[in-house]
């Protein structure tokens, strides 16, 4: 199964991440965000960063998780190799996501191109297709 794939979007990046569960799709969506800038497979897993976000809706939860990723990138130059844990609990009105990422702080060691400025709600979809949960999002580049 493909973990994520990118689609044509003129000015920015549109991707769809897949999983057997929402948690797995969210973890793959984080990798999709990073892979717009760097080949995550090439990044060493020598540092670990964890964060937790709370949000009333699942779309907002996804948005906030992406925000955390960009915060780590801007403040620590943290590049991700893998999402070692992703746990989502709650229900509509009150969701919580806790993620742990493994990667590297030495961004100058990798070929990094482009930069995600922000997540957007534009064309964001969370749904079921072909028996998989998917998260679709557009990133502002």
């Amino acid at each position: 199964m493909r973990r994520f794939e990118y689609f044509d979007h003129t000015a920015d990046t549109l991707f769809r991440a897949y999983g057997d569960s929402f948690e797995e799709a969210l973890a793959n969506a984080v990798l999709a965000v990073y892979n717009t800038m760097v080949d995550t497979g090439s990044v060493a897993a020598v540092e670990e960063r964890s964060f937790r976000v709370e949000a009333p809706r699942r779309e907002t939860l996804v948005y906030d998780v992406f925000e955390e990723v960009l915060f780590l990138l801007d403040t620590e130059s943290f590049l991700c190799h893998e999402v070692s844990s992703c746990r989502v609990t709650g229900r509509e009105g009150s969701w919580t996501a806790s993620l742990t990422l493994r990667g590297d702080l030495r961004a100058d060691r990798y070929e990094v191109s482009g930069q995600v400025k922000a997540p957007t709600y534009h064309e964001m979809r969370i749904g079921l297709g072909k028996g998989k949960v998917f998260i679709q999002a557009v990133l502002d580049l």
């Binding site: 948005y63 925000e67 403040t75 709600y121």
Partner: peptide, 28 residues
Amino acid sequence: GLGHQVCSDYLRRMEDSFPEIMASLPEK
């Protein structure tokens, strides 16, 4: 990143503060 975060912060605050406006919009 500073400007990007300002935009994101206030989009979220407006979304939380004005749910009825949010629901009425063709694009969030």
